Simulated assay, not measured.
Amino acid sequence: MDAIDEQIIAELTRNARISHAELANRVLLSRTAVRQRIERLERHGHIAGYTIVRPEDSAGADVVSALVLVHRRDRMRGGDVLAALKRIPEVVICEILSGDFDIMVRLEAASLERVRDIWEDIARLPGVRDTVTSLTLSKVVSRPRRAKDSTVGE
């Protein structure tokens, strides 16, 4: 990744719906070059997806959040568990941990029933030994992830 890639990611972070033409103007490249860079960034995992962010005072308030702590049967060969977690759309964070638990999963689902269904699916995965689940009661701090300051020539 170079400075232009960083700039593209920063612009997409600010507005994921920006047109390739507008993005090209902002990073001083052609539309084709911007499209090719975005495709490469997606292939290499620098852009993993696009999402919708809703204000807390609107429809986002009815989202049920939960943390699922996962014990795998085999820490070193548990890639199939990670692959299965990546396929669950309600998984918004999945991190490998050191310490007592192997994986931390944050779910954001439309209902408590959906959280339960996902928890049951995770618990049934062949590589999972045990889980501990906690529901989020309230958010104290919720900061959007900030892109690195990569503005060039400003």
Results as ranks from 00 to 15, higher is better:
Arg54Asp: 12
Arg54Trp: 09
Arg54Glu: 08
Pro55Tyr: 08
Glu56Met: 13
Glu56Ala: 10
Glu56Asn: 10
Glu56Pro: 03
Asp57Trp: 11
Asp57Ile: 11
Ser58Cys: 02
Ser58Lys: 14
Ser58Ala: 13
Ser58Arg: 15
Ala59Trp: 11
Ala59Pro: 01
Gly60Asn: 12
Gly60Trp: 05
Gly60Thr: 03
Gly60Cys: 01
Ala61Val: 06
Asp62Tyr: 14
Asp62Arg: 15
Val63Asp: 01
Val63Ser: 11
Val64Leu: 03
Val64Ala: 02
Ser65Cys: 05
Ser65Trp: 10
Ser65Ala: 09
Ser65Asn: 13
Ala66Ser: 04
Ala66Pro: 06
Ala66Arg: 00
Ala66Ile: 00
Ala66Glu: 02
Leu67Lys: 11
Leu67Trp: 10
Leu69Arg: 14
Leu69Thr: 06
Val70Trp: 03
Val70Ser: 04
Val70Lys: 05
Val70Pro: 01
Val70Thr: 02
Val70Tyr: 05
His71Glu: 12
His71Ala: 05
Arg72Lys: 08
Arg73Gln: 13
Arg73Lys: 13
Arg73Trp: 04
Arg73His: 09
Asp74Phe: 04
Arg75Thr: 02
Met76Tyr: 04
Arg77Ile: 04
Arg77Asp: 12
Arg77Met: 07
Gly78Ser: 12
Gly78Asn: 11
Gly78Asp: 12
Asp80Phe: 07
Asp80Cys: 00
Val81Glu: 02
Leu82Ile: 12
Leu82Asn: 01
Leu82Tyr: 04
Leu82Ser: 06
Ala83Tyr: 02
Ala83Gln: 13
Ala83Pro: 03
Ala84Gln: 05
Leu85Asp: 04
Leu85Trp: 05
Leu85Ser: 03
Lys86Phe: 10
Lys86Arg: 15
Arg87Ala: 14
Arg87Pro: 03
Ile88Arg: 12
Ile88Thr: 08
Ile88Tyr: 01
Ile88Trp: 00
Ile88Gln: 04
Pro89Val: 08
Pro89Gln: 08
Pro89His: 13
Pro89Asp: 08
Val91Asn: 05
Val91Tyr: 03
Val92Trp: 00
Val92Thr: 15
Val92Cys: 03
Val92Lys: 14
Val92Ala: 05
Val92Phe: 05
Ile93Ser: 10
Cys94Lys: 06
Cys94Leu: 10
Cys94Asn: 14
Glu95Arg: 14
Glu95Thr: 09
Glu95Pro: 01
Glu95Lys: 14
Glu95Gln: 15
Ile96Glu: 11
Ile96Trp: 13
Leu97Lys: 14
Leu97Gln: 13
